[in-house]
Lab assay of single mutants.
Amino acid sequence: SSGAIIYTVELKRYGGPLGITISGTEEPFDPIIISSLTKGGLAERTGAIHIGDRILAINSSSLKGKPLSEAIHLLQMAGETVTLKIKKQTD
C-alpha cells in the first residue's frame, strides 16, 4: 500500500543558501517538489530532504493552491530560519 509521511525540517541558513532547487508550475494545485539538492549544501546535510519530496508549507505558509512563483517568493523572503513542511511518498 502506498502512503506518505509528513514532517517538518528546520534549516538555519546563517546567511548562506539553502541548497535546494524547487520545481512546479503556475497551475495553483500542481505540487511543488524538490528537484535538486546542492552537493554538500545545507539541505542535503540535514539528511531529511530528498529529490522528489513535496513541499507543503514554507514557514507555516501553506503552498496549497499556490503557484511555483509564490513558493519561490516565500523561500526568498523566509529569513535566517526556514521551516519546510515536507511530504514524502513511502511505497
Rank of each mutant, 00 (worst) to 15 (best):
T8H: 07
S2R: 10
G65P: 00
A4S: 15
S36Y: 13
M77G: 12
E26C: 07
S60A: 08
I5T: 09
I58L: 02
I5R: 15
S36L: 02
R45I: 12
R13F: 01
S62Y: 05
M77E: 14
G65Q: 06
L18P: 04
S35I: 10
K12M: 05
E10Q: 08
G19I: 01
G16W: 04
I6C: 04
G15Q: 14
E10P: 05
L18V: 05
R54E: 09
I20P: 00
G47M: 04
V9Y: 00
G65Y: 06
K12N: 11
K64V: 08
T21Y: 07
Y14F: 15
G15H: 09
E27T: 14
T25K: 06
F29H: 10
T25Q: 07
I22V: 09
G47T: 07
S2C: 09
I72V: 15
T21M: 11
I32Y: 09
L56Y: 05
L68V: 10
G65M: 05
L18S: 00
G15E: 15
V9F: 06
I55R: 00
A78N: 07
E44C: 06
I6N: 09
E10V: 11
G16T: 06
Y14P: 10
G65I: 02
K66H: 04
S1R: 07
P31Q: 13
I58D: 04
S60N: 14
D30P: 04
G41C: 11
I34N: 02
T83I: 14
K64H: 13
T21E: 10
T38V: 15
G40I: 01
N59S: 03
T46R: 03
A78E: 09
G41R: 01
I20K: 00
S69P: 03
K39L: 07
E80Q: 06
F29C: 12
P17C: 13
G52I: 00
V9S: 00
Y7I: 14
R13K: 14
K12W: 04
I58F: 02
E70Q: 11
G24S: 12
E10A: 03
L18Y: 07
T8P: 04
A78D: 06
G19E: 05
S23M: 07
A57S: 12
I34H: 05
S1Q: 11
G41Y: 04
G16M: 12
P17Y: 04
Q76E: 12
G24E: 12
R54Q: 05
I58R: 02
E70H: 11
N59Q: 01
K39E: 02
E44I: 03
T25R: 08
G3C: 11
R13L: 07
E44K: 02
R45S: 12
V9A: 14
Y7V: 09
P28Y: 05
K66C: 08
P28I: 07
E26L: 04
D30V: 06
I32F: 08
T46I: 10
F29A: 09
E10N: 13
R45C: 08
S2P: 08
T8W: 05
K66V: 13
A43M: 03
K39D: 05
I32V: 05
L68C: 09
R54D: 05
M77W: 06
D53R: 02
E10T: 12
G19S: 03
I51N: 05
G16N: 09
L42Y: 09
T90P: 14
A78M: 07
V9Q: 01
Y7D: 10
E26Y: 05
G52F: 01
S61I: 11
D30K: 09
M77S: 11
G19T: 02
E10K: 12
Y14W: 14
S69N: 06
S2V: 03
R45D: 02
I6M: 10
S2F: 09
E27S: 11
S23N: 08
G41H: 01
K64Q: 07
S69C: 07
S36P: 01
S2I: 13
I20S: 02
Q76C: 10
K66Q: 07
G40P: 02
G41N: 03
K12L: 05
I5V: 10
G47S: 08
K64A: 14
S69E: 11
S69D: 06
G24K: 12
G16E: 14
A4W: 14
K12V: 11
G16F: 03
T46H: 14
A43Y: 00
L84W: 15
G15T: 15
L11S: 01
A78K: 06
E70W: 10
K66N: 00
D30H: 13
A57P: 01
T21Q: 14
P31T: 05
E70V: 12
E27N: 14
V9K: 00
L56V: 12
R45K: 11
Q76L: 05
T38L: 06
T46K: 05
E44G: 01
G41A: 02
G40F: 01
S2D: 05
G19Y: 00
T21H: 11
K64C: 09
L42M: 13
S35R: 08
L11Q: 01
G40V: 06
